[in-house]
Design a protein around this nucleic acid. Structure first.
Lengths: 358, 358
DNA sequence: TTGTAAGCGTTATCAC
DNA sequence: GTGATAACGCTTACAA
C-alpha cells in the first residue's frame, strides 16, 4: 500500500547502501569500500560516508553480502540427540565458550538441532548444503546423514568436539577421558577399594567406552580381573542421566557382594545414584566412594560434595573454534588432527578410603 | 586455480538450480516453481525435476532465496547476560522447547549472545537490522541498545519470554511468579512458619521483584509485618547463583533470631545454601524448610529432595514461538499481550512443619 | 581515489 | 503450464 510498486521490498524497508551513497554524495561502490576497507578511500569522503551511514542508522544486509561473496558468517553447532545424557549439565558452558570465541571472530552461532531424528538430520544438511553456514562444530556425536547426503560430503569445514573423530579426518578436540578415569581409579585402588560399580551410558558410546576402559586398565595394572567391576546402566531407554542413577541404585542394593566404589560416566547419574543409596541407608564416603565425570558446577554442592573429573569445556570450545577458523582460512592446509585438553579430578568428600570391614 | 574466471563462486560449488533445470530439460523458473509450489506445475515435469534435483543432490541456496524474498528463516534468541543467575539450570530445556517448535515451522535458531556487553549488543542489533533474522525471542532480559539503535526500533517481531514486557508492547510469555511464591509461602505459614529468609537475585530484577512481593503479600495476608522476612543476597557481583547461596548461609548462621523457612529465588542458590547450612549442622526440614524457584531436574536428587516451583519452560518456549509466528504472519494484528503459564509447587522433603521450639 | 557495471542464486512478473 | 527476464542489496573488476 505504501509503495505503488509491488516489489517484495515492502517488508524490510531499512536504509540501503544506495541511500547512504546518495546522502553522502558519492557512488554506492565507494560506500561499500569505505565500510569494508576504510584505508582505501580518501579520509574526507570516509568521514562523510560514516556520518551519512550513522545518520540513517544503516546496517548492511548480511544476506546480500553473503550471496555476493559466497560465504556466510554463521557457524552451526550440532548437538547430540539426547540432551540429558552426559553432556547435559555442561551444555550452557560449551555454548558460552564457543559463542564467545565465534563472536570475537565475527561469526554467529546457530543451533542446528536438539534432536537427532530424521527431520533434524535433514535440517542440518540443508543448512550445510544450502550455504547458510560457513562451518560446523559437532558436539559429542556422529556425522549427520540423510538419504543420499552426508555432512562429510559437503565442503564445509567441520571440527569435532568431545568425540575423537580424527579417524574420519575431522580435527577433534577431546579430553583424556580414558587416562583421567584410569588415574581416578588408581587413586581409589590406593585407598583400598577392590570392588567397583561402573555407571554406564549408552552402550557403544565413545565416552562410555573410553571411560570404562580407563577403569579396566587401572584394575589390570593393579593385577585385578575385569570382574572386579560391575557394569550398570547403559540402556538407551533412559532420557535423563538421572534415571540411570536411580536404576543403578536399585541394582546396587541387590548386589550380594557390594562394591565399595562407584565410577559414573556422568555427573547426572552420580548425583541421583548418590541421593538414592544414601536414602537407602548407605553412608558416603564411609561405605561407598563415588567419582563421576563432567565437572558440572552443581557437584560442589551435593551432600557430600561430589568428586568429579572436570572437563575444561569452555577452553575446549574455544579450541574448537580456533581450529575451525584455521580450516576456514586455509581449507587445504593439513593440520594436526587430535587435540587433547586434559581433564582433572577434583577430589571432594565423596571420595574416601575403602571401608575396613570389606 | 580450478577456474580461469576468478569469480567468488570458487568456494561453494554445489549444484545450482540452473544445473537441475538443464538436466531436467526445463527452464530455471519452472524448477523454482516445482520446488516451491508443486501444485502449479505439470505432474510429469514435476517428477522429472524432482528426479534431477535428487540425482544432483541439489539444495537451494538459502541466502539467495532470502535476499530475493526479503525474509530469512532464522529466529534469534537473546539470552540474559549472566548465565548463572536464575535461568541457568533451565536453559537447555528452554532452548529445546523453542528450537523444536521453530523447526516445525521451518525456522532455524540462532543464539544472539551469551554475554551482554557492548560488543554483544551491537552484534544483536546487526543481526536484527541486517536482515539476518526474521524475529527474536528475548529471554528474561531487557531490550538491547547500542549507540543510537535499539532493538525496539527495528520492525522485527519480538516476543519476551519469562519477563513481562507487555508494558513495552511486547507480547510476553510469563509464569505467575508472584502468585506461585505467595501460595508456597502460604503453605509454609500454614505449617507454622513465622520467620523467613529470602534469597534474592539482583536487585531490581523482574523475577526477584515479583517473587519477593509474592512472599510479602502472603505475610501480609496472614497479618505478619514485612519484617518477618529477612532479605539476603541480591548482589550483582555474584556470577553463579551458587555463590549467593553460600554467602547467604553465612549470613544465616549469624542471625540471632533464626528464620525457620527459606524462600529462594532460584534453584542454584537454594541448592548451595542447603548444602552449606546442613554442613554447619542444621537439619532440613526439621530445623529449616526450603523452597525455591525454577524446577531444575536436579532438585529431585538433592538431599533432602528440594521443593521447587516448577516453571513449564518447555511449554513456555513453544508458546513464545507460536506468538512469534503469529506476529510474523500478521505483523499488524493486535494480539493479547500477556500470556501466563502457571508454575506449580512441587512439594518435596525440604518442606515441613516449623520446629516446635520456636 | 572514485565511478560504472556485472553478477552472486534465487523468485516473481509477465508474456506466450 | 512454461519460459524469458528483471529484480533482491551488495562486492569487486575494471575503467576513468
Amino acid at each position: 500500500m505504501k509503495n505503488n510498486k509491488d516489489l517484495p521490498a515492502e517488508e524490510h524497508s531499512g536504509p540501503l547502501m544506495a541511500d547512504v551513497a546518495r546522502l553522502a554524495g558519492v557512488a554506492i561502490s565507494t560506500v561499500s569500500r569505505a565500510l569494508a576497507n576504510p584505508g582505501r578511500v580518501n579520509e574526507k569522503t570516509r568521514v562523510k560516508i560514516d556520518a551519512a551511514a550513522k545518520q540513517l542508522g544503516y546496517t548492511p544486509n548480511a544476506m546480500a553480502r553473503g550471496l555476493r561473496v559466497g560465504k556466510s558468517n554463521v557457524v552451526m553447532i550440532i548437538l547430540p540427540g539426547s540432551l540429558y545424557y552426559g553432556v547435559s549439565q555442561v551444555i550452557p558452558l560449551v555454548l558460552q565458550g564457543i559463542n564467545r570465541s565465534l563472536s570475537q571472530n565475527g561469526y554467529h552461532l546457530m543451533i542446528a538441532n536438539l534432536d537427532r531424528d530424521e527431520a533434524s538430520e535433514r535440517h542440518i544438511l540443508d543448512l550445510a548444503f544450502g550455504g547458510t553456514v560457513r562451518g560446523a562444530i559437532i558436539l559429542s556425536s556422529d556425522l549427520p546423514v540423510d538419504g543420499g547426503r552426508s555432512l562429510k560430503d559437503s565442503a564445509l569445514p567441520i571440527v569435532s568436539l568431545l568425540f575423537d573423530m580424527s579417524h574420519a579426518a575431522l580435527p577433534s578436540v577431546v579430553t583424556n577421558d580414558r587416562q583421567a578415569v584410569r588415574e581416578a581409579t588408581a587413586e581409589l585402588l590406593a585407598l583400598g577399594h577392590r570392588r567397583f560399580l561402573y555407571l554406564a551410558g549408552p552402550q557403544g558410546n565413545y565416552h562410555d567406552n573410553e571411560r570404562y576402559l580407563g577403569a579396566v586398565e587401572a584394575l589390570a595394572a593393579a593385577g585385578l580381573p575385569e570382574t572386579a567391576i560391575v557394569r550398570s546402566g547403559g540402556s538407551l531407554d533412559y532420557q535423563h542421566g538421572f534415571q540411570i542413577g536411580v536404576a543403578a541404585a536399585t541394582e546396587f542394593a541387590d548386589l550380594i557382594l557390594k562394591p565399595t566404589a562407584v565410577i559414573a560416566t556422568s555427573d547426572d547419574m552420580a548425583i541421583s545414584f548418590m541421593s538414592c543409596v544414601q536414602r537407602m541407608g548407605w553412608k558416603i564416603p564411609t561405605d561407598l566412594s563415588i567419582v563421576s565425570f563432567d565437572g558440572a558446577p552443581v557437584c560442589e554442592y551435593s551432600l557430600p560434595p561430589l568428586s568429579t573429573i572436570e572437563q575444561p569445556v569452555e577452553e575446549m570450545g574455544q579450541m574448537a573454534v580456533n581450529l575451525l577458523m584455521e580450516r576456514i582460512d586455509a581449507p587445504d592446509k593439513v593440520t594436526a588432527q587430535r587435540h587433547v585438553i586434559e581433564s582433572k579430578l577434583i577430589r571432594r568428600e565423596s571420595f574416601g578410603p575403602a571401608p575396613s570391614n570389606v
